[in-house]
Simulated assay, not measured.
Amino acid sequence: MMTWLTENTLVFGTWGVLAAVLLLPALEAALPLIGVLLPGQTAVVMGGVLAHHGRVPLGWIVVTALLGAVLGNGLGYAAGRRWNTRASGTSTYGSPCCPRCAASARGSTSSSPS
């Protein structure tokens, strides 16, 4: 995995490496499926190895990895905050978010509150 990632990012030069180090950790935190397929830590380690070999400046790798992690956590939080009520049917406080959800929680089949 590491060899494939390194070879394909080096095709795009320094900017390709920095984009991989920024985007993979960000997408891993925001979209968990991406993290299953290609963990963001792999890109950060790859960036560190390439910096060790003098292909990319280490400072740029550290900054882009940090920005990717912070950006991904922010995007993941925003997505959870935005779509949490739709996915679970409850508000952020655990109470039903609408009369239909309240009725289904009580076991009633009608969507009008009683």
Rank of each mutant, 00 (worst) to 15 (best):
T85A: 15
T85W: 12
V17G: 03
S91F: 10
T109R: 15
T85C: 09
Y77S: 14
Y93C: 02
A30Q: 13
G74I: 15
V63A: 11
T92G: 10
G59M: 07
T6G: 00
A43I: 06
W15Y: 12
T42M: 13
T109F: 13
W15K: 05
S95G: 08
G68Q: 09
A29V: 04
G89E: 00
A69K: 10
G89P: 00
V36H: 09
T42S: 08
N84T: 08
G48L: 05
A19Q: 03
L67I: 10
V63M: 07
T3R: 00
A29M: 10
A102Y: 04
R100K: 07
L31W: 12
T6W: 00
Y77G: 07
T90Y: 13
G107C: 09
G74P: 05
E7Q: 09
R81W: 14
A102K: 07
A20H: 06
G13C: 09
S108Y: 14
L33T: 13
T42P: 01
V21S: 05
I34L: 12
T90W: 05
L31A: 12
N84H: 15
P25N: 10
G48D: 01
T109S: 14
T6R: 00
L31Q: 05
F12H: 13
R55I: 08
P57E: 11
T14I: 11
M2C: 00
A30D: 12
Y77D: 13
S114Q: 15
L38E: 05
T42I: 14
E28M: 11
C98D: 14
M2W: 06
G35H: 09
N8D: 05
S108P: 00
L18A: 03
T6E: 02
N8S: 07
A43S: 10
Q41Y: 06
A51C: 01
L37T: 11
G107Y: 11
T14S: 09
A20S: 12
T92K: 08
S110D: 14
T3G: 00
Q41E: 14
S114K: 15
T92M: 09
H53Y: 08
T42H: 05
L37E: 04
S104Q: 09
A65Y: 03
L5N: 02
N8P: 01
C101A: 08
T6K: 00
S110C: 10
S104G: 02
L71C: 13
P96V: 07
H52Y: 12
T9M: 12
G59T: 10
T9S: 07
A87H: 03
L27D: 07
A87W: 10
V70W: 14
N8A: 05
L5H: 04
G59L: 13
G47V: 02
G74W: 15
L24N: 06
G89Q: 01
A102C: 00
P99S: 13
S114F: 15
W15H: 10
A105F: 11
R100G: 01
P32F: 07
L31V: 15
A19D: 02
L10D: 03
W60S: 08
R55Q: 13
L31G: 03
R55E: 14
S114R: 15
